[in-house]
Design a protein around this nucleic acid. Structure first.
Lengths: 340, 340
DNA sequence: AATTTTAACGCAACCGATTCCGTTAGAAAT
DNA sequence: ATTTCTAACGGAATCGGTTGCGTTAAAATT
């Protein structure tokens, strides 16, 4: 338990005042280059390490980015975090994470804890349950930048980083139509979550524009888009008098389960049933036949989100900022929709 | 930007001293229950939130657990983090993460940053490259608990949470032997990493104990156990004059690539080639035939690691502690090894 | 030469909670 | 009635940087 070196120790050693040491370490312009060099060398020599807590207390911020997501161990989210962490660390920011497990009340609790930790910025992908967004207001009121990623609320004046879910849904459906599908089912997610709502809208419009009647029987509303739900839905669809010849699933997990389930029943994929998913999860390239899907630039979204925070902290602006970044997605065609 | 409420504001409001407020909020024994109640109610009423930075500065610790891992977007690691975060948050601890990308120098840099952040404890799974472990000494010297998980160093006197890799390797290999395999190959990981070294040892001993000659040609040393490496290795093995009839891969990624690669070449799995992997990654249950594997209690390991830190901080002990927790793993048999 | 400017640095008050020492009033003990 | 004890609380220093406001001496300007 050796004692820590502080700027006071450096000051005493070099016959400077603590203020000068502090400024020198921060490359303040009113300190001569010679002095800065001397101070930094001495700091290195004595093994000084800055006390971020003290600085944070004084400045009332912590150079820390808080993250609130549903679960870390989902490929999309862990990739996003990976992107956040990478760019944050380059600027000397720490990243602290919290999981809501898709529960609203957990999200509220976690945000409170993050708020208490004086995070410099917040990156959020909403829990599945969240409808009310009052718990974000304290951050806004304090001028702490909030970036919503992927699952964003409606009408909240902050940064947002998203993909064009509508177009993606439209294109995924159109892809199946182009492949000759006439009866296309949709695995829809919770409709109060923008991403699933928009994907569904894209699906519906694609059908309409190609003069394919919308059959409500073919639209299955999921709660969590899990594997188990996917199996049930697939079974239900296959039992229909006229089963579908295509499925657009709002995520890959359910899409993969559809492939496995249909195969088990002897349904030929893609000939009798073409399937396309969403997210480009690792499992989608492993399943057989491989699942066509929509790319989802998770890591890139994380990097952009982090940059918004860093930029905001750097510029130290007070005005409310509303900036929406929309990223491109592409169809990744694999065997599950490769017919004709 | 409304002003923050501090304990001084509460003190003024209630005609107490800040000391009393502080003690009341922390349930100090020398404060009467009535006062505690009054203080807490007023705190709630005025929207007081504790300033963790100030407390951290005073106590020289942050109630934060630091994590150093290779990459977040790997299923095993994100599950582990998930476990850490869950138990840490229950005790009011934050979790900050850093990724080394399996590079030694990144690990060193990240640890320095974590050290500067005054983390209360550190949880580490070593990077693939790390051999020298001097960068952990500052933590030990400062009495900051360090918990190594999964990829642990040798001979470091701290907490460790691991599985019995030797037995797991032994059992995986024995499983193939029991299934009738006579020529079993091994996809081995970097041998300076305990986990891979021990799995290989288990493999070797299993062969010896069952009087199967060890053929060095069948032991492929990987650098990162990636999909691409797996393909190469599989191709190499299949070109052998007498190809193997079993593969024990030290991870699932390489194991899955072996399945796909062998299938492409018309090799029948498991009849002609039985395969078992390691980790129980999601892809292993999706691939066809599904990959047998060894379970790896990632989330549980994370929870235990976090508990070690919490316990340590709580008890505030000074003596060095060395405590090794070894968790059980089990064979998960799937189609890739289900012959006879 | 007198005045203004500027570069380089010091002083001291913060930031908000914690904690070592008290202090005080009332209860308990003698 | 006097002393001892204890419960309940207050004072003030402390943690380590940061920063607005000086100050000083040298350089630049007139």
């Amino acid at each position: 338990m050796k004692k820590e070196i502080t700027i006071y120790d450096l000051a005493k050693e070099l016959n400077y005042s603590p203020s000068t040491i502090s400024r020198a370490l921060n490359n303040h312009k009113s300190i001569s280059p010679k002095t800065i060099k001397k101070v930094k060398e001495q700091a290195e020599k004595m093994g000084y390490r800055p006390n971020t807590l003290a600085a944070g207390l004084r400045n009332n911020k912590s150079n820390t980015i808080g993250i609130s997501i549903s679960r870390i161990n989902r490929h999309f989210l862990s990739s996003m975090i990976s992107g956040i962490e990478e760019t944050a660390r380059k600027s000397g920011f720490n990243v602290i994470i919290s999981q809501s497990d898709d529960k609203y009340e957990n999200e509220v609790r976690n945000l409170k804890a993050l708020y208490d930790s004086r995070i410099s910025g917040l990156i959020v992908s909403l829990s599945m349950e969240t409808v009310n967004t009052d718990h974000f207001k304290p951050f806004i009121n304090q001028g702490i930048p909030v970036v919503f990623v992927d699952r964003v609320p409606q009408g909240f004046n902050t940064y947002k980083v998203v993909i064009d879910n509508y177009s993606a849904g439209y294109n995924a459906t159109k892809h199946l139509i182009d492949k000759g599908c006439k009866r296309i089912a949709h695995f829809a997610g919770a409709q109060h979550r923008n991403v699933y709502q928009e994907r569904k809208k894209g699906y519906l419009d694609a059908l309409r524009e190609h003069n394919i009647p919308v059959d409500e029987q073919l639209i299955i509303h999921f709660k969590t888009l899990s594997f188990e739900e996917g199996e049930k839905a697939t079974n239900k669809l296959l039992k229909l008098p006229i089963p579908p010849d295509g499925i657009f699933s709002a995520n890959d997990t359910a899409g993969v389960s559809a492939i496995l389930c249909a195969k088990k029943k002897g349904v030929k994929i893609p000939e009798e049933l073409a399937i396309i998913g969403f997210n480009d999860d690792p499992i989608s390239s492993i399943v057989e036949p491989a699942l066509s899907t929509m790319s989802h630039p998770a890591m890139k979204m994380g990097k952009i989100a982090a940059k918004r925070i860093l930029n905001h902290s750097y510029k130290n602006h007070d005005e409310e900022v509303s900036e929406i970044t929309v990223l491109r997605t592409e169809i990744i065609q694999r065997a599950s929709s490769d017919k004709k």
